[in-house]
């Protein structure tokens, strides 16, 4: 036998080859059926894909996602810290909030906020001895977009709070002790030492949350949220071209999710500093 290079007959993976062949056949059949269908209407898809009101819907979807994630994450940090509080009332309150908003369907919450006026017809703020500071019909204060943002961010808070709490708990206790020993206050320790390290654990699931959120915004079409899905529904409600318009929406969601995935890669790399040994690093 040649000592420098091994020549051997590789193992024949007949099972794998058969599986791959079946997959290719299924794929070909599916795409042929798709393209042969007269109802897909690629021309219609192209016609609506960049229509100004579709683009506006995409904008609203992005805005809803961004605002709900920012508010949701900020609230989540507060909730997570409350959940870890030494005070049982604060801890219990945070637990109850999470229990409620995780325990009811998002669709129910969206409709609830959309129909808030049915529960409280007016929103009034009055201070004893001062008088009424604020009094407006609920439908004026909580518009469709406001209701959508309320529903999405409150729901997100509940989920993200548990992710943030897990991240905080993942940071070694020695880090907090070292920070305290340096004279850092509990708040400063949390902000400068614990949270930046927790981010490494928090970011991957939060990327997931953002992607889920982007698609969950489609649910606000039930309260006329003006997002991409609402727009698309409005169009096919008029012209009955349901499938082409759903494809338009799907293409946009796919494109946006792809962009988010790339962004997530860079954010993860930023917060992984000091953990994964950089190129040329020791150990």
């Amino acid at each position: 036998m040649d000592p420098t290079s091994v020549r051997a007959v590789p193992v024949r993976h007949y099972g794998r080859w058969a599986g791959a062949a079946v997959l290719v056949v299924i794929a070909v059949l599916f795409f042929r059926a798709l393209l042969d269908s007269p109802n897909l209407e690629p021309a219609t898809i192209g016609q609506y894909l960049f229509k100004d009101y579709v683009l506006h819907g995409v904008g609203v979807t992005l805005l809803l996602t961004a605002v709900a994630m920012v508010l949701g994450t900020a609230g989540a940090v507060v909730l997570a810290v409350l959940r870890l509080s030494a005070n049982p009332v604060l801890r219990g309150g945070a637990w109850a909030f999470i229990w409620f908003f995780r325990g009811t369907p998002l669709l129910v919450q969206i409709i609830f906020w959309g129909f808030l006026g049915a529960l409280f017809p007016r929103i009034t703020l009055s201070v004893p001895f001062v008088g009424t500071l604020f009094d407006q019909p609920t439908s004026v204060v909580v518009s469709g977009t406001t209701a959508a943002i309320l529903a999405l961010s409150l729901n997100e808070m509940a989920y993200a709070a548990e992710i943030v709490r897990g991240g905080i708990l993942s940071v070694d206790r020695g880090q907090t002790e070292a920070a305290h020993a340096l004279g850092m206050s509990p708040a400063l320790t949390m902000r400068r030492i614990v949270l930046p390290q927790a981010m490494r654990v928090i970011i991957p699931p939060m990327g997931n949350e953002t992607i889920t959120m982007l698609k969950s915004t489609a649910l606000v079409s039930v309260i006329a949220g003006h997002d991409l899905m609402t727009v698309v529904q409005g169009v096919y409600g008029n012209n009955y071209k349901v499938i082409p318009l759903l494809v338009v929406a799907a293409l946009w969601y796919l494109a946006l999710v792809s962009v988010l995935s790339v962004a997530q890669f860079f954010v993860e790399r930023r917060f992984g500093r000091g953990f994964a040994a950089p190129r040329g690093g020791l150990r």
Binding site: Q175, A179, I193, P196, Q197, R200, G274
Partner: peptide, 8 residues
């Protein structure tokens, strides 16, 4: 265990 801040 040193407890240096690994992100700094």
């Amino acid at each position: 265990r040193f407890n240096l801040f690994p992100h700094l």
